[in-house]
């Protein structure tokens, strides 16, 4: 067993079927720490389904999900988060009635509260200090300081993406799953988003698994790519290999280029 197997997220033989429709079929991949790994594929390739299985919102029909060497296939979303797995949502499921600052603080606070009723009831002083420090750091990193007091529901899509990201960054998760973070963003916002993610990985050494449509973002920040189509892995390699691959072009880029 090599050290990389303990290091990050590892999915083996993942199969998810909805009735007779197999959305994901025998998928295996690894997203180690310290690297931005991309998961790409055309609409309906099974990317978000894979994500949901990784974060515990879906039970796979077969296969396993391992995080830092621990089998987490049978655990619920909260248990996975406590083990270091954070995710964002394509729909940006923010706490809309709370402020930006409260949203970000909850990233860490929810993790500290865990499933312990006493810890959920009160916040020890030590926690309060660390939550405040993490929140301030994230507000600065994502440049959300001016909006800290705004209700999250009143923000633009670009700002909401950042709040969604900021929430998992504040949580200090060791493995981040980012679900189509560029959808709804313009190219400048997308580039800024990419810079933030790159910087976080460089600073904290966490792993990132990115599901993305925007090829320029994927090609610029990912070190390793997995390409899905119809729930199956059709290619893997670094961005240059993917760009050169005929299979990928046929399945994905071809339909856009035509």
């Amino acid at each position: 067993m090599t050290s990389s197997e303990h290091d990050g997220l590892r999915v083996d033989g993942l199969t998810i079927a909805f009735g007779g429709n197999t959305a994901v079929d025998g998928l295996s991949f690894a997203a180690p720490r310290g690297r931005i790994t991309g998961l790409i594929g055309p609409n309906g390739a099974g990317k978000t389904t894979t994500f949901n299985a990784c974060s515990g919102l879906l039970r796979p029909s077969a296969g396993s999900v391992r995080l830092f060497g621990t089998d987490i296939t049978g655990r619920g979303p909260a248990a996975r988060a406590q083990h270091g797995l954070g995710r964002t949502f394509q729909r940006m499921d923010l706490f809309d009635s709370l402020t930006v600052e409260q949203n970000i603080a909850l990233g860490l606070e929810a993790r500290l509260a865990r499933s312990n009723p006493l810890k959920q009831l009160r916040c020890p002083r030590r926690d309060r200090t660390s939550v405040r420090a993490a929140t301030e750091a994230v507000l600065e990193l994502c440049d959300l300081g001016p909006h800290r007091g705004d209700p999250a529901g009143s923000l633009s899509t670009g700002q909401r993406r950042l709040v969604d990201l900021g929430r998992v960054l504040a949580g200090g998760f060791d493995m981040l799953l980012l679900d189509e973070p560029s959808s709804g963003l313009d190219s400048a916002e997308t580039r800024r988003f990419g810079r933030i993610v790159t910087r976080v990985v460089a600073d904290s050494g966490c792993g990132v698994l990115l599901v993305e449509h925007d090829m320029s973002l994927v090609m610029s920040i990912c070190e390793h790519l997995y390409v899905l189509d119809f729930g199956k892995m059709i290619f893997e390699g670094d961005p240059a290999d993917v760009r050169a691959s005929d299979a990928v072009r046929a399945a994905y880029l071809g339909s856009e280029a035509a």
């Binding site: 974060s55 515990g56 919102l57 619920g76 979303p77 909260a78 996975r80 988060a81 406590q82 954070g86 995710r87 949502f89 499921d93 923010l94 706490f95 809309d96 009635s97 709370l98 409260q102 603080a105 909850l106 990233g107 606070e109 929810a110 993790r111 509260a113 865990r114 499933s115 312990n116 009723p117 810890k119 959920q120 009831l121 009160r122 916040c123 929430r167 998992v168 949580g171």
Partner: peptide
């Protein structure tokens, strides 16, 4: 309190609160 923040967050989106690591069933009870 922290519970209040968790509750308001849960009222908005229980799914994302769970993926952030809070045991929302405990919060509810």
């Amino acid at each position: 309190s922290r519970l209040g923040r968790l509750l308001r967050a849960m009222a908005d989106s229980p799914t994302s609160l769970a993926t952030l690591g809070a045991g929302i069933n405990v919060t509810r009870v």
